[in-house]
Write a protein that binds this DNA or RNA. Sequence first.
DNA 1: CGCCACGTTGAATTCAGTCAAAGAGCGTGG
DNA 2: CCACGCTCTTTGACTGAATTCAACGTGGCG
Lengths: 265, 265
Amino acid sequence: MIRSTPQDDNSAFLPGAKSLARKLTRFMPLTDDDLRMLDTLPISEERFPADTDIIGEGMQPRSVFLLQEGMAVRYRCLADGRRQIMTFLLPGDLCNPHMFLLKTMDHSIGTLTPVRIAALSRERLVGVFATHPRVSAALWWTSLQEQAMLHEHIVSLGRRDAKERIAFLLCELLWRYDAMGLAEDGMYSLPLTQTELGDAVGLTPVHVNRVLRDFRTQGLILMKHRMLKVLDVEGLQEVASFSKDYLHFDGASAEVLNYLNRLEA
Amino acid sequence: MIRSTPQDDNSAFLPGAKSLARKLTRFMPLTDDDLRMLDTLPISEERFPADTDIIGEGMQPRSVFLLQEGMAVRYRCLADGRRQIMTFLLPGDLCNPHMFLLKTMDHSIGTLTPVRIAALSRERLVGVFATHPRVSAALWWTSLQEQAMLHEHIVSLGRRDAKERIAFLLCELLWRYDAMGLAEDGMYSLPLTQTELGDAVGLTPVHVNRVLRDFRTQGLILMKHRMLKVLDVEGLQEVASFSKDYLHFDGASAEVLNYLNRLEA
DNA sequence: CGCCACGTTGAATTCAGTCAAAGAGCGTGG
DNA sequence: CCACGCTCTTTGACTGAATTCAACGTGGCG
């Protein structure tokens, strides 16, 4: 059965900091103490409707927050209206561990769907870095992962053609959702208009449409009710020469794990 | 007078961690103690010739290092030889504070010129984060700045045309060099072939050539001996709608400075 | 001096953009 | 329940920015 977003079944509803915990454990196992600490971070919950700015360019960065439910994007607009989406924010994504150091936001964060976020205590977050090296390492890992995604995005826009770009994005989202347990059998929520997709991959909505049609007629994907089903994962990955190595779901190096374990003892 | 890189006058030769200190003080003033600490970080110095990989994709990340002199790039190659440069590394750039968490590099770092780097002690660096909140904040700031540059790079490749992209890059480099005291009167070292420039802005060398010619005939720039002189900074910035806000050279927010000062006392 | 990589220019090609119009889906309100 | 209006999707024809291919300059270095 297919549902439209926001999902109101509990598969996407992760109270406390569970979505963050889920994400961090993709990098390394966390102790019960680590998990308890994570659960003390959220201090309030906020909801935003779809197509709203959570925070806009030029504003002063407010609290660090965690996306719990829904989909959001980092984006920037040029003076003449051209728009570019830099990042997709999915449940479990932190935003932004140390942004508060800056005077003003250099980009906006906006919702694509209704969204639920948890504001995190800045003090306790700083405390985590001091007292929980394992969580701290996992948080750093998330920022490395984000950096790697930005790198790949640059490669896509700079050197990949339209089909490769779109296939690549769809693959990235598939594996990110999968890592959070939010993709089932190649299917996940994709609540984007073709204009928004174009704003992410640097193409016009018209061209996005044509590429998606080709993918559909080739039996690679199926789109319905703002859900995407990847029918042929291998095939789609091949179009984009996609390899999920850059997402670093393979965990921390043994050396780092040993080091952190020694600190524990 | 014009010199080719690497510069062997001492304007670009900053022993110890001076280049890092110079960069960090663009964000906030550092105490003598902070500076002394920074100077204890380098444990060895290495040199690489031009067009060499400092570390390649797939390798295990080694030590954290600081670029002291010369120019390097982060880049990725696709299977068929297409190449995309993600980042330019200039003197004072740190590379990469927490990359060692990962099992393998997802991109390469290569030199464009002969380069001098300082390997930093991982332990002391971790120590800095624990004991020197002010340096720690400044280091975080550098990673935010890098993230902002990646964002702008994505905007360029996704939504700016050829002239805008190239003008934007030249402006960014101008202000980055300027911040390090390595640009004088709009002139700085640009030891790139047009192919390499194209690999950064996602264009072919032929098209890069044509755009540069236009800029030259418009009296915007002048290139000679691998140096670039921006004759009309305003004009070049206008072509790209460039604003240097995103580089965040305006320092930390008063709130953060207060907070750090209170920690000090 | 001569090599070789890099820069420069022109002509033909192509991928993606633009413009325009028609169709589908969905919520609202009569 | 259907009609309306809105936004998003889809398709076709034409345009255009950037690529490709190919040739010729040029400047630095052994």
